[in-house]
Design a protein around this nucleic acid. Structure first.
Lengths: 225, 225
DNA sequence: CGGTATCCCCGTCGATACTG
DNA sequence: CAGTATCGACGGGGATACCG
């Protein structure tokens, strides 16, 4: 486990677990709904699998998750203690979105962005049948420029290669701008007006597009004046 | 600054600052009202002064505190961003007090306990004039057994040597038990009934004693069944 | 899919002493 | 009171490869 502080204070005891590198991000993934090892990995791609493995064991020992194995299927299921970390994640994210404004170029990651968007698709809002959203990031290397979100019957796939289906709506913008909009630093409408996001497709879909996502709770947090 | 995560997520950006060792405890001290370097030290006695110094510089750079020097007087004053870390500290402490039940022997520290009690004295509740509370921890080495809290005119002093004033009320108990009561794991009344805390002095003062402290917010947090 | 094993480096932290 | 200076150890964690 992490190093101890030698303090009885509840904050200190909690931080002995939570202040270790990556731990809070793994918890974020868990409270966001990921249960499987490789899904968790997609949320923390820069973390080595061995370290993720170690962290999961620590979280099991701490009583935050339970490792549930059914045959060959392994899932990490939040316990009551784990669910109660949601307010902690929310408090930290709320503070972060208000006070850590500067996003460095190294924080921009199309794969991570798509992965986050993919789990915030509101299936009740997306038209029935297959809906394909294409994204083109104009300011990145060709290999990570084009992405597709394929929404079909309650499932969402992230593709970095053309899945071949007809595209319903296409988005063209900069990765930084798209990230800012996703975080709520810039509103969708403002970006459209400024023409820093271009959307193509039938007007009905273009208008509906922003409602297809249940935007992150942090996107709605008021920013300091 | 701390290592980066390469993620645009507000939680990740916040944790780049907050997950470094000791940082959250220093923030706890700051939101608890400490403003001076040596007061902060008393709240994190196991932290080396050089590391505290480094952390303070990081917190200044991050915009959490402002270093205000007036002549030779130096104070670290919370900014708006700093004040807004209070909900984070509360969320973490609330989780910690519910789910990290086991307090190791190495987490027990009479000096830290007295320092925490000292800043939770409710001056409106304590009788006017000088009030002296003596504490004796029956289960620790003689050198850290006896303590005094001297409350006088809005000021509180922690003494590890007899200040010589007449004692108003004396408390005799184990350090672990006193810590449990202070954290709210055990109620004052229950400890009295179980005779694991003995209080001596005039009955009026004995009864009033628990009201002299504004107990930590975490003490009131409901524990899991 | 769901992890382990290994290796090694670098940076953090702890300890201690000292200063204006 | 409010810090700096120095130094060394250790171990966390990054990278990579591999396994059932």
């Amino acid at each position: 486990m992490g190093a101890t502080y030698g303090q009885f204070c509840p904050v200190a005891k909690a931080m002995e677990l939570l202040d270790e590198r990556w731990t809070m991000l793994v918890v974020r993934e868990l409270v966001s709904g990921s249960e499987r090892f490789n899904d968790l990995r997609r949320g923390v791609p820069r973390m080595s699998p061995s370290l993720l493995s170690k962290r999961m064991q620590q979280l099991v020992r701490a009583g935050v998750v339970e490792r549930v194995q059914t045959g060959s299927d392994v899932r990490y299921v939040l316990t009551q203690a784990g669910h109660e970390l949601l307010p902690v994640v929310e408090a930290i994210g709320t503070w972060g979105v208000r006070w850590i404004g500067e996003i460095g170029d190294e924080d921009l990651d199309p794969q991570l962005l798509l992965w986050d968007m993919h789990r915030h698709v509101d299936h009740d809002a997306v038209p029935s049948g297959r809906t394909v959203i294409s994204l083109r990031f104009t300011d990145v290397a060709p290999s990570t420029r084009d992405w597709w979100l394929v929404v079909d019957d309650g499932a969402v796939d992230v593709c970095d290669a053309d899945p071949g289906f007809p595209v319903s709506v296409s988005i063209e913008t900069g990765l930084r701008r798209m990230t800012e909009v996703w975080r709520g630093d810039v509103s969708w409408q403002a970006a459209l007006r400024a023409r820093t996001i271009e959307v193509r497709g039938p007007e009905r879909l273009r208008r509906a597009l922003p409602t297809w996502f249940t935007w992150s709770v942090f996107a709605a947090v008021a920013r300091p004046a």
